[in-house]
Design a protein around this nucleic acid. Structure first.
Length: 660
RNA sequence: GCUGCCGUAGCUCAGGGGUAGAGCACUCCCUUGGUAAGGGAGAGGUCGGAAGUUCAAAUCUUCUCGGCAGCACCA
């Protein structure tokens, strides 16, 4: 090793295979790739230097472990997507001068970039922008990293009219190095790293949609115009992604709900569901299943009022913290006088309940409770109304009239852990039964707008954390996401196509028992405050049914399917036998329909398959003679001919509601 | 609520300043046929609503209601 004065020290780079390459002095990723081979040079996108991703052009000055990143690496997607966002921004600014850039992060499957422009972009602009992007990629502009002085950067962006960028830089912490990436004539503030040139991006991208988005995600700020895009390593991946979107659209519960005749919505009852016989059958199955599980877990079911006086909601704290989401009803006989207002301005106000909890406290408060009575678990399929913003409504997933599988556990502080653990067990067992074995847990802590003192919040947050630790459940934190009266656990389940949904919740509340003065008599003979656990497994039945429809793509398990079996005849000669089959199945409590129509069997099979009926039993000459049926299961082209008695037993066993 | 797009028969969609179209579904007739659409005939909308421009509006303009996507909010 020569260390002659004036000469730089050599740099040893160790490759992933363990081999080491030595260079005379600082060396870039490009040089290294070139040194290894021309194929790699062409494929190289960036380089890991001691685990950190660097630009290829950035000199490596000391001995390091390195690995060159190519499109084959999963991690390359992040790089490609972010570069794609930059190329899009360059294209936009080239096409629409005066448009300001703001932020453009990666998201799942792609990226977006928010622009500030007087006139928002429309879908028609996307095609033009995409074309320009291909042009920029064709120009193969070198992408160069530059380190700038913070104040110079702010001045520069202000000077060129990029006020949002200037604001972003001004808000960066002092410790942050300000880096700017230049590609051709265009440059943008960015942490990097980036590809060596725009040409490396390829053509596996597509601009998807435009949308409004508030600056910094705050509805008080001005609205920017956002463009969403997707970007992949190659065309094949892009195509697969677009296919995945199509498949997801086929599962849309609004579409399936119509096709399967489960429910409908109409504008006179925005956000409230009209359940049809088929859909309500599924609802009742699910509700009864939960009812059984709760009963087995020591809950008592109750029913509480829809309309309660505003004074009551003032006391509970909802009037102050939740009123903008509540439906208010005047407690007054509406005037029928012509010209007169229907209700007077000073009418006494009632409100439709947005939550069940305060009403459950009222039931708890009837009579004197001893510490020996606790825990008391009140369950209610409570129908609640919330005045959700119009833009938030979405099929069954976001409604204004909702039915929760709600319950409140009143217990002593020393029972919090065991009750929480028991709830977690119940929830995971129910999710398993319903076909959702995977879920994640978040601990949502105190929000800005809240009731109760910090001391109470400290205790509540710690209580939930302890319960999770005792139950041995892994979790993450969701800071500031708690309810206004207490912290909560959020249970997020994963569906068949990898989406997650928050359904279950467990909320610890020291505030409401205090506000509504709930007490029990302790061992010491004096009054104590119970702790209240608010909890739901499904969340709301409406939304959970929506999730299940999409999860199963309409092909519900037999016990939930609205119509479990269709008996279809080959010709009218077998009508009587078909009716006998139906009778035997119905005698076992199965939901059966008979199809005696003057149609060919092909037609009948096709129609009932589209309607997602799990089992079609075909009867003709052969079956009638042998007292058999031909069984066709949804999703299978095979048929088996089985004795009638056998299939009745088999199906009625299979259709049993799970028992945990 | 905010931004953009959309609003034609039960569903999916075409059309586009001169008195509404297709496929499926529906009704009737023929057909009685073995596992994802047999054939024929018929009925059904005044084009989300209101106002305006015009000799004439579903078609253009404005307002309004609703839907969709995203944002914000959220179960």
């Amino acid at each position: 090793m020569s260390d002659t004065a004036g000469n730089p020290s050599p740099v040893n780079l160790r490759l992933p295979d363990g081999s080491v390459r030595t260079f005379d002095g600082p060396v870039t990723g490009t040089t290294l790739a070139e040194d290894i081979g021309p194929g790699l040079l062409k494929a190289a996108l960036a380089i890991y230097v001691d685990g950190e991703l660097w630009d290829l052009s950035r000199p490596i000055e000391k001995d390091s472990d390195v690995a060159i990143l190519t499109k084959k690496d999963e991690a390359a997607l992040d790089l490609l997507r972010h570069d794609c966002a930059h190329v899009m921004a360059e294209a936009v600014q080239e096409l629409f001068p005066g448009t300001q850039v703001t932020i453009g992060p990666n998201i799942e499957d792609g990226f977006f970039y928010d622009f500030a422009r007087d006139k928002p972009f429309t879908e028609d602009d996307l095609e033009v922008i995409e074309k320009k992007m291909h042009e920029i990629i064709g120009r193969d502009e070198a992408i160069e990293r530059e380190v700038w002085d913070r104040n110079e950067a702010i001045d520069y962006f202000k000077k060129i009219g990029e006020h949002y960028k200037a604001e972003i830089i001004a808000d960066l912490p002092d410790t942050e190095t300000i880096t700017v990436y230049r590609q051709g004539e265009w440059l943008d503030l960015c942490r990097g790293p980036h590809l060596p040139s725009t040409g490396k991006l390829g053509d596996a991208f597509k601009l998807m949609k435009v949308a409004g988005a508030y600056w910094r995600g705050d509805s008080k700020n001005e609205m920017l115009t956002r463009i969403y895009g997707t970007c992949w390593a190659d065309k094949k991946q892009l195509k697969a992604y677009l296919h995945r979107l199509e498949e997801a659209a086929k599962r849309d519960h609004r579409k399936l709900g119509r096709e399967m005749d489960l429910f409908h919505l109409q504008e006179e009852a925005q956000g409230s569901v009209f359940w049809h016989p088929q859909g309500y059958t599924v609802w009742l199955q699910l509700e009864n299943y939960i009812r059984n599980r709760l009963k087995d877990a020591g809950y008592q079911e109750i029913k509480t009022p829809q309309l309660l006086d505003s004074k009551f909601w003032e006391q509970s704290g909802h009037w102050e913290k939740f009123r903008e989401n509540m439906f208010v009803v005047p407690d007054e006989v509406p005037s029928t006088d012509e010209g007169a207002p229907i209700v007077s301005a000073d009418a006494r106000l009632m409100a439709l309940k947005p939550m069940n909890c305060p009403a459950h406290v009222q039931v708890f408060k009837q009579g004197i409770k001893s510490y020996r009575d606790l825990p008391i678990r009140f369950a209610e399929f409570g129908c609640c109304h919330r005045n959700e913003a119009h833009g938030a409504l979405h099929g069954l997933m976001r409604v204004r009239q909702m039915t929760q599988d709600d319950a409140h556990i009143f217990c002593r502080e020393d029972q919090i852990t065991s009750e929480s653990v028991a709830f977690c067990d119940l929830l995971s067992s129910i999710y398993r039964d319903l076909g959702f074995p995977d879920f994640k847990v978040l601990l949502a802590t105190r929000p800005d707008v809240r009731a109760g003192t910090d001391e109470v919040w400290d205790r509540a947050e710690k209580g939930l954390e302890e319960a999770l630790n005792t139950a041995g459940i892994e979790f993450d934190y969701a800071p500031g996401e708690g309810a206004f009266y207490g912290p909560k656990l959020e249970f997020h389940l994963s569906d068949a196509i990898g989406r997650t949904w928050q359904c279950g919740t467990l909320q610890l509340d020291f505030v409401l028992p205090e506000r509504l003065d709930a007490t029990y008599i302790g061992e010491d003979g004096s009054k104590h405050r119970p702790v209240m656990l608010h909890r739901a497994v499904l969340g709301t039945l409406e939304r959970f049914l929506g999730i299940m429809i999409e999860h199963y793509a309409g092909r519900l398990p037999l016990w939930l399917a609205p119509t479990q079996v269709v008996v279809a005849t080959i010709t009218q000669s077998f009508d009587a036998y078909a009716q006998k089959v139906v009778d035997q199945l119905e005698a076992k409590g199965m939901r059966v329909k008979i199809d005696l129509r003057n149609e060919k069997i092909n037609y009948k099979v096709r129609e009932h398959s589209h309607a997602k009926v799990p089992v079609i039993l075909v009867v003709g000459q052969r079956e009638m003679e042998q007292n058999q049926v031909s069984v066709r299961r949804l999703g299978s082209k095979d048929q088996t001919v089985v004795d009638l008695d056998t299939i009745v037993t088999e199906l009625s066993t299979e259709a049993k509601m799970p028992q945990g």
